[in-house]
Design a protein around this nucleic acid. Structure first.
Length: 424
DNA sequence: TCTGGGGTCCTAGGACCC
DNA sequence: TCTGGGGTCCTAGGACCC
């Protein structure tokens, strides 16, 4: 039985989440900004029509606020994460197997199942629209790469009404459509690779589909070889329900204003460890390496040299105890810190992840370990019930003057009792 | 003035082992 | 002067993704 995969994704996801709770935003040019209100990361169709590009620094388009009525919002990840979880729950009802690929994208595996893709695509889109108020598109194909590309076709061609399936069209027609798609739109071909492939005479998705895979592997990598196979309907990338890879947890932020003192850097790094450790425990993992990095930023005005360095501190015993991880991170930070610089950003990474149940304990730590586990569990329970940072660590600072800007975050409608939407 | 954050995967090269 | 070969593990860096 041949492979049949769908990719569902929400259109303009962050903006659509905001619109679902604030109908006044409908029909208007709206953008949602990245952390620190730095870059545009989501745009309504009206904003796209004004020429606002993805990822553009906000200050470059700020004039459109006055001249064209552009509305801007800070990002509200509590809201988007919750809406995403609801969307993925609904999508899971449609297929035997589901892979949550990103906050707004999901692969569904229908291999071995008979279905009418036109009806299914319509049903999925209607369900998500009715339950959550989100517009979506659906693409069907024999591989993940083809499903992604089908989704792209569904999105740009109005005649497809938000759903497209390669397998219902004759091969010649599929090729004609692919010939019209830029090679850079193919999943796995990024900003570096596209010009290199262009230089080899490959310009469209169809060119890549017909390219010799061996040669591409030699010149580039095995990834590109797989992409070519996937474009030809030979699935190489499986649909995976859960990720059991080793993985890592990263927490990083740009500062609201430059930071110069070690004391403030210590506060910031501590607060990032607290967040990362929460996520680590939510995954049920311990880590055995703590990385920390600082950066003076790549857009420096003062002409000085950029300083961005990282250091990894190994732990003798894998841990998920915030206190231990903070101690390790601060140890690394002390070695990294150079006075007299204006730091723009810092971060931590937890790696060497393993399941919490299997610690290779040091001989005498049994009792300590139980105490630690209880303390962390209590901390997480308090913060889950009463909201983030209800109980925290003094080392992270109280005033936190270095914190990022988030001038226009909408209410956390669905995750905070005190911010529930009020219906009049 | 103002330029995000959180990931994955592959490859090359060095350390180390037998 | 001459100085193996094969394997694994780890890490850094680069490319990609959303």
């Amino acid at each position: 039985m041949s492979s049949r995969i769908a990719l569902v994704d929400a259109n303009n996801f962050y903006v659509s989440c905001e619109r679902a709770f604030d109908p006044r935003l409908k029909g208007r040019p709206v953008v949602v900004l990245s952390n620190n209100d730095g870059c545009v990361v989501s745009r309504s169709n009206e904003a796209k029509a004004l020429g606002v590009r993805m990822g553009v620094p906000f200050f470059e388009v700020r004039a459109l606020v006055g001249s064209r009525g552009l509305v801007w919002l800070s990002s509200n990840y509590a809201l988007y994460g919750d809406i995403s979880a609801r969307m993925m729950g609904l999508l899971g009802e449609f297929a035997p197997q589901r892979e949550v690929y990103s906050i707004d994208e999901c692969f569904l595996d229908f291999s071995g199942v008979a279905f009418d893709s036109a009806k299914l695509g319509y049903d999925i889109r209607r369900r998500i629209q009715r339950c959550l108020g989100l517009p979506t598109c659906v693409g069907f194909g024999a591989s993940k790469t083809l499903a992604k590309l089908a989704n792209h076709v569904a999105k740009i061609g109005r005649e497809h009404k938000g759903s497209f399936d390669w397998d219902v069209l004759p091969a010649a027609q599929c090729d004609a459509i692919m010939a019209g798609i830029d090679i850079g739109e193919v999943w796995g071909v990024g900003r570096r690779l596209a010009p290199e492939l262009n230089a080899m005479g490959l310009r469209s998705a169809l060119d890549l589909k017909r390219a010799p895979p061996r040669l591409l592997r030699k010149r580039h990598s095995v990834i590109l070889e797989r992409t070519v196979a996937e474009l030809n309907g030979l699935p190489c990338i499986g649909v995976e329900e859960s990720t059991t890879r080793e993985g890592q947890v990263i927490a990083t932020r740009s500062f609201g204003r430059p930071v110069t003192t070690l004391a403030e850097l210590r506060e910031a790094v501590s607060s990032y460890v607290i967040r990362a450790a929460e996520r680590l425990r939510a995954q049920g993992c311990h880590c055995n390496r703590v990385g920390v990095f600082v950066d003076t930023g790549k857009y420096r005005q003062d002409g000085g040299e950029r300083y961005n360095h990282a250091i990894e501190v190994p732990l003798t015993v894998a841990s998920d105890d915030t206190r231990r991880l903070i101690a390790a991170a601060l140890h690394g930070l002390a070695r990294l810190y150079k006075p007299g610089l204006r730091y723009k950003k810092a971060g931590v990474s937890l790696s060497g992840l393993r399941p919490a149940g299997s610690p290779q304990g040091d001989l005498f730590s049994g009792y300590e370990r139980q105490r630690s586990a209880r303390l962390m569990a209590t901390l997480d329970a308090i913060n889950k019930t009463w909201g983030m940072n209800t109980a925290s660590f003094a080392g992270a600072g109280i005033a936190q003057p270095w914190r990022m800007q988030s001038a226009r975050r909408s209410p956390r409608y669905t995750t905070r009792w005190d911010e529930l939407p009020v219906v009049c």
